[in-house]
């Protein structure tokens, strides 16, 4: 089984947003939303040691995706090839996963009322094509492929040229979008746009920590009471006085 990953070469990215436009067109992303976006970090440091980068953000298809467990209907899942997907037929639009994502890579589509995000262009992969952002990138800054293919470009870039993940000490869930840079731009991005702690909405928290145990206790207690009554009934014998 493959393990898909993406590498973005930050030394080549010119911030032209062609990837965002191609992605929006490919997947009918409504205005104001995006599956992938390009965010400038702005210049940091003191002259002449200035650093700046374009953060090409999208779903990271994490090794341990924090968005899967909060989904109440099982619409969000991780496929065998590592791609984290949303099944729109199962999604009810509760938004639990949107709050859970440390990279803000998910959005609730106001038209379909379902959650949407980058799926590494799974539809195009099935047809043997590369993701739309990769083929469109004007600076050829994006690479996509199988991380387990030792002869493939991704393996070479990640392990040979040591592309970096955007992680922090607090949030390390194994993102599979890697970044190449000459002056450690990945660290700069992690500084300016740090992955945030996965959030659980109050409803999800309330459900898993309070309602579920309470419900199980209530049903269990009822069952226990009835079991006691049943044994009592067996001991005293059934009365047939009414029939």
């Amino acid at each position: 089984m493959a393990r898909y990953a993406m590498v973005t070469d930050l030394t080549r990215c010119v911030g032209c947003q062609a990837c965002t436009a191609a992605c929006n067109a490919e997947w009918n992303v409504p205005a104001g939303q995006a599956r992938t976006r390009v965010l400038p970090t702005g210049a940091t440091g003191t002259f002449p040691n200035l650093r700046a980068a374009f953060y090409v953000a999208q779903c990271n298809h994490c090794d341990e995706p924090p968005c899967v467990r909060p989904c109440p209907s099982g619409a969000t899942f991780q496929a065998d090839n590592g791609i984290v997907k949303v099944d729109p037929t199962l999604c009810i639009g509760c938004g639990f996963c949107v709050d859970a994502c440390p990279y803000e890579a998910r959005y609730l589509n106001p038209e379909t009322k379902r959650v949407d995000k980058c799926d590494f262009c799974s539809g195009r992969l099935e047809k043997g094509q590369q993701p739309a952002c990769v083929t469109t990138c004007t600076a050829h800054a994006k690479y996509f492929g199988d991380l387990e293919d030792t002869a493939g470009p991704i393996f070479q870039l990640v392990y040979g040229k040591s592309a970096k993940r955007i992680e922090s000490a607090d949030v390390a869930v194994g993102p599979n979008v890697y970044y190449l840079g000459r002056r450690d731009e990945a660290a700069l991005i992690a500084e300016v746009f740090p992955p945030r702690q996965p959030r659980m909405p109050a409803a999800a928290e309330f459900w898993s920590r309070l309602v579920k145990p309470l419900a199980l206790t209530m049903v269990g207690a009822t069952f226990l009471g009835q079991a006691i009554a049943f044994f009592h009934q067996l001991q005293t014998g059934e009365k047939h006085s009414d029939d």
Binding site: I92, G93, C94, V211, K212, A215, V219
Partner: peptide, 29 residues
């Protein structure tokens, strides 16, 4: 039918589950 905002749908899931649980315990009796 995805009525209302995400928060409404999210709470609907929880309330649906909780009310069904209440009925189930009564249903057992």
């Amino acid at each position: 039918f995805h009525w209302g905002s995400a928060a409404v749908v999210g709470w609907a899931v929880v309330v649906h589950f909780a009310t069904v649980a209440v009925v189930v315990s009564g249903l057992m009796v």
